[in-house]
């Protein structure tokens, strides 16, 4: 602890890194969110197989299935994001520590981003094997870029909504009903961007405007969440 305290004053990014390391350590020692999200994703693919009655999907249908699944899986992670802080008094610790409060936002956002990336590392290949008809290789670089932008959107909005909902009476209801509509613009852009990548003879790169739209979304909500996060901790 004293070692951390000494480090804290050195650089503004230190507290963020310390908080992030704590989250990653927790998840590594007692894996909770990531396995649940992975299992949930694969189960959802199976459900889509039976629900749609199709062995293979491609194009915009594939993009929809993949992205909606990731979105719902993210909800699980967002719900759990601040549970440890809430139950173990971590909020008070952050408030008492001589650090910028947005460090908590940055740490949580980054943690969520890493969680989502790890989940996708498993879920996207699973999707390609279980459901995707055409070969995923030709659009893979663009798919990675798009998913990274989606993760950015999910993690900035997710960290904010998680902090908003954690101390309400009905956290697990508030998180999905607030997050899902907020993510609609990101889903629109991401689905349009992914559709040609998952089609049989689609382009290797989506139209730039969808990636720009996603980037704009990330920028606006990242900055906004960063600006207002302070007010969620002032107690």
């Amino acid at each position: 602890m004293s070692r951390d305290a000494a480090r804290r004053d050195a650089k503004p990014m230190r507290p963020t890194m310390a908080l992030l390391r704590k989250d990653l350590l927790l998840e590594r020692r007692a894996p909770e969110s990531i396995p649940a999200m992975v299992l949930f994703s694969i189960t959802t693919f199976v459900l889509f197989h039976f629900g749609l009655g199709r062995d293979e999907v491609d194009g915009s249908l594939a993009a929809g299935v993949l992205l909606v699944t990731i979105l719902f899986a993210a909800i699980l992670g967002i719900n759990r994001l601040f549970v440890a802080e809430h139950e173990e008094g971590g909020f008070d610790a952050v408030l008492m520590a001589p650090i910028d409060r947005t460090a908590l936002f940055l740490a949580k956002g980054t943690a969520l981003f890493l969680f989502l990336t790890l989940v996708e590392v498993v879920a996207v290949p699973a999707f390609a094997i279980l459901l995707l008809g055409p070969s995923p290789w030709h659009g893979l670089p663009a798919l990675i870029v798009t998913l990274a932008l989606v993760n950015l959107a999910l993690s900035s909005v997710g960290a904010l909504v998680a902090a908003l909902a954690i101390r309400t009476r009905s956290r697990d209801l508030i998180v999905p009903i607030v997050t899902l509509p907020l993510l609609v613009p990101a889903l629109i852009a991401a689905a349009r961007a992914c559709a040609p990548l998952l089609a049989a003879h689609g382009d290797a790169w989506p139209a730039a405007k969808w990636l720009l739209m996603l980037g704009l979304y990330d920028l606006v909500f990242g900055l906004l969440a960063y600006a207002v996060f302070d007010f969620l901790l002032e107690d």
């Binding site: 908003l164 101390r167 309400t168 613009p185 629109i188 852009a189 739209m213 606006v220 969440a225 207002v228």
Partner: peptide, 28 residues
Amino acid sequence: ERQARYASVFAIIAGAFVPLNFMAVRMA
């Protein structure tokens, strides 16, 4: 007091969401 603060955070985020959302839907 917290209700007011949290509601304001929501209203700000949602207020920025409105034009962005309109743009995205329009594009699509």
